[in-house]
Nucleic acid binder design. Structure first.
Lengths: 273, 273
DNA sequence: GTCTATAGCCAGATAGAC
DNA sequence: GTCTATCTGGCTATAGAC
């Protein structure tokens, strides 16, 4: 390749990046359905027809944005795995979830592009599926490590109907992953439920319902992790619902709330409001 | 009111209904962001300006559609409460969730309008919050009945930080509901997670991941109910993770899968695939 | 309440000169 | 690769006759 070729290619990638950047900006203002090549071109001081040299259609630009966003949130999730090493699967799971949440809060419109309503008239091409799987894979990595460490409680196979277990086995084969089918099914459910928490926070359903969102999220995804079978190393026994942490049905819940006040203060360093 | 007035009003409500109906049809084709008064008018054989006598703006039409949809899904949820009476809170919870799912599958675009990405440039007015709460209220009704029957396991208050418990108390006060704060917080989390399952199914994230969607959903929401503290009447003990239903970490998961085959066959009447 | 007409915008995409 | 020019369509919203 000649130097001129290199310069041309560099210019091309720079313009491509500028287009995507401006498109992301507009995504935030008008949403994906109204993303317009013309408006992007106008803002960049180009003419609309010039953009077609970079993206053959509006949908191709949208695809590029989607792939970039999946890669960004996936990288955030994977980054949490390396920045939060350790032997506690629940803590690692929570760290991954929190990294996803942080990315989502920082990029709400790109998040909506990935996990919100499908864009009408647009169907994602195959190129998106690998990037789309990265967050789920990061969560599965936590589960596999937990299993290797003996910290994954596998639900009885009778928990799930055979059809679901068959799906799980197909999925495990496709991913070349050796997780037991009942565990994988539960992890898929937890994966979906995680995004239920995020969607409600980002799409406004928590308005006037949950205000302490970070704390609510952290505890909820921890519970999610345990429901999916992940155990903290200090004791599988501590996850026993008969142990402290769960009451059986109380006779007077008001009294129990009051009784718990000192425990609250101990754990969180302030009185309950 | 004269007979003429009555006729006029009847005509008006009929035209209003026709407009909303056609708007819903277009919602399904183009999405909320591209809902256009002109297109609705064209399809109804009217002229665009005539629509302004019924809806003062595009956003008002959108609001009407949103309220109708929240009322429809809320009515479906409440209907499940009456068509599935009984003393098993987990079964009732599951029935409500399944009713919501059925409505969502039958009206995917209206579902997306409610629980998908916010419509850019549109902010929902206050009129929408009461209809929006109906599904959650139906779920809370199940929890309150369970508590009255001694079938609600209230998590220890130390499960949640004080800020979350404070939110839960504010919410309980606003709803004039006497659920203990830790239970309510868990129920809110379960409510959000329910819609994570639905969003993933409806928005395509389960493609090539979960195919047996109905079964997957039914089992997942049952687990969700139990995680939120609901108990089946035949035995709180059966929810004990140390009892059959959960294994501790197995030495050979393949073998366990095989061992479970007869149990699967017993419960679901067919062999695992 | 409905109509025609109009103002003032916007879009995606292509042709052909340079 | 970028430009001008153009085609063909879309939209919200209002004015004013009937």
């Amino acid at each position: 390749m000649s130097a001129i070729q290199g310069a041309r290619e560099r210019a091309r990638t720079e313009v491509t990046a500028a287009i995507k950047s401006e498109a992301r900006r507009q995504l935030a203002e008008q949403g994906a359905a109204k993303l317009s090549l013309r408006a992007v071109a106008r803002e960049l001081g180009m003419v609309s027809s010039a953009l077609y040299r970079y993206f053959p259609s509006r949908d191709e630009l949208l695809t590029a944005l989607i792939i970039d966003a999946y890669d960004a949130v996936g990288a955030a999730a994977e980054g949490a795995l390396t920045t939060h090493p350790g032997s506690d699967p629940v803590a690692r799971w929570t760290a991954v979830c929190q990294a996803v949440r942080r990315w989502a809060l920082a990029h709400p419109h790109e998040y909506a592009l990935l996990y919100g309503s499908p864009v009408p008239g647009y169907s994602a091409p195959r190129d998106t599926v690998a990037p789309a799987s990265r967050v789920g894979m990061a969560l599965l990595t936590v589960a596999r490590e937990a299993r290797a460490a003996g910290l994954l409680r596998v639900p009885d196979a009778a928990t799930w109907p055979p059809s679901v277990l068959a799906d799980a086995r197909t999925l495990a084969d496709g991913l070349e992953m050796e997780l037991p089918a009942p565990a994988l099914a539960g992890l898929v459910a937890a994966w979906a439920q995680l995004f239920g928490l995020l969607n409600f926070e980002l799409f406004g359903q928590f308005t006037n319902v949950v205000e302490a969102r970070e704390e609510f999220f952290a505890v909820s995804v921890g519970t999610l992790a345990r429901a999916a079978g992940l155990c903290s190393p200090e004791g599988i026994a501590a996850e026993d619902p008969d142990a402290p942490g769960y009451d059986t049905v109380p006779e007077d819940p008001q009294a129990r709330d009051a009784d718990a006040a000192t425990e609250i203060a101990r754990r969180f360093g302030q009185a309950g409001a």
